[in-house]
Design a protein around this nucleic acid. Structure first.
Lengths: 232, 232
DNA sequence: AAGAATCTGTCAGCTTCTGACAAGTGTCGT
DNA sequence: ACGACACTTGTCAGAAGCTGACAGATTCTT
């Protein structure tokens, strides 16, 4: 179980048991036939889903179509993904995990906002360079899908809120305060998320060709300088 | 049609046609029997829904139960509300409309953040005092419902994103810039929303008895001072 | 009071998602 | 290699959300 147990509601939906899509961290060299097969159907399912989503749109694609394309029953689909949206959401969930991990690794003397900014930049760069196993195009397609479909936008936001608590804990530790007593960590976590969201959402419409990492970094920069205009 | 046409996807779901729950603004003295009847079933439906949501929880309540409680068919329910969640969401949507309207009415020489803060405070105070027709308890129950159910949280956030564009336009006008060229208005709009969301969500858990208006105002204050810790 | 507009219920159907059971496939110890 | 066991899959049945279409009832207009 890679995911923290905090994300109860979401964890339940993100693929049953331990088929989390991440490689098993144990030292075993060969995953075994069964495991490989499972991974293959999972990948096939995700690939077919993205294919269809791109061609017909998210809403217009049914689970049955996805399952048929891979020649499994739709029941099997639901055993791999908690729902149609989880095909997309699972990917995003992984990204959050990575950002949070990167944040924790930042030098302790960096101020929170700077640490968040650098951590996000690192992870985004890694995804854009395609070194995470997922191609750069797939990555771009995921963000595109989410911003186009309102239903997906909502679900992605919902995912945020379940993960935001973890971010709050981490930020509080770095600030040296207790999150139950100091309201600021929760606020910083929430604002960070909306920075990312604005950059990948609204800003992208005006600048479709600017890499996500650049857009997001700009958002962090602006917010670090203050949100009042004219400046207070 | 009270709602701006920008909120296309959501507008379609928030109660068909013009039964938007707001009183008809025309000068006609009597609304007519039909209109009154419609308003009554709508109110009854919402009341029954809240009753059941509070008693059994949002997910555990079915549309059929709500309809049965008012003695109409479930088909009729869907003619009044776009879906089960819209019973709750329609209320929130009204609040956004009010905040945006209040923001527009703020004196032009106020900085954006201050104007936003005051506008939000005004509207919240109005709701808490119960002068909007909705009782203070109903208001509290709505926010409680949303923060408890992850599905509702997601949908509420989704509503935000469809409304955020309007906020962006208004902010841009006040700043005297074009939102397509200047990225800041969209960012401010998004950050404002997450301020409200954090205050009514995470903060409430630690301070259940503090009024929402106070919590939200504190969030605005903190953000106005900057989000970096230690301060940059 | 007749006709038009509107509201409602019923019916049929689609889609998402879940539980239960049986059959097939991989794994492990001997 | 073989059998016991664990795991995966498909089929079946069904709940819940939601929508279109049609017919009957109610309200509004003239």
């Amino acid at each position: 179980m890679v995911l923290s147990s905090t994300a109860s509601s979401t964890a339940r939906r993100l693929g049953a048991a331990d088929q989390s899509g991440r490689a098993p961290q144990g030292g075993a060299a060969e995953p075994g036939l069964r495991e490989r097969k499972k991974q293959r159907t999972r990948d096939a399912l995700r690939a077919a889903a993205f294919e269809l989503f791109a061609r017909k749109g998210f809403e217009a694609t049914t689970v049955e179509e996805i399952a048929d394309a891979v020649e499994v029953s739709s029941r099997t689909f639901f055993r791999y993904f908690g729902g149609k949206d989880d095909v997309v959401l699972a990917t995003i969930d992984d990204q959050y995990t990575d950002v949070l991990a990167a944040f924790e690794l930042r030098p302790a003397d960096e101020p929170v906002w700077t640490a968040m900014r650098r951590a996000t930049a690192e992870v985004l760069a890694r995804y854009e360079s395609g070194e995470t196993g997922m191609s750069a195009e797939s990555f771009a397609r995921v963000t595109g899908l989410v911003s186009v479909s309102p239903a997906l936008t909502g679900r992605a936001l919902e995912l945020c809120t379940t993960r935001i608590d973890e971010g709050t804990q981490l930020i509080a530790r770095r600030m040296g305060v207790r999150p139950e007593q100091d309201p600021r960590p929760a606020l910083v976590a929430a604002v960070m998320l909306s920075a990312i969201q604005t950059a990948t959402g609204a800003w992208r419409e005006n600048e479709p060709d600017t890499p996500t990492s650049v857009l997001v970094d700009r958002a962090f920069e602006l917010l670090g300088a203050g949100i009042d205009y004219p400046a207070a």
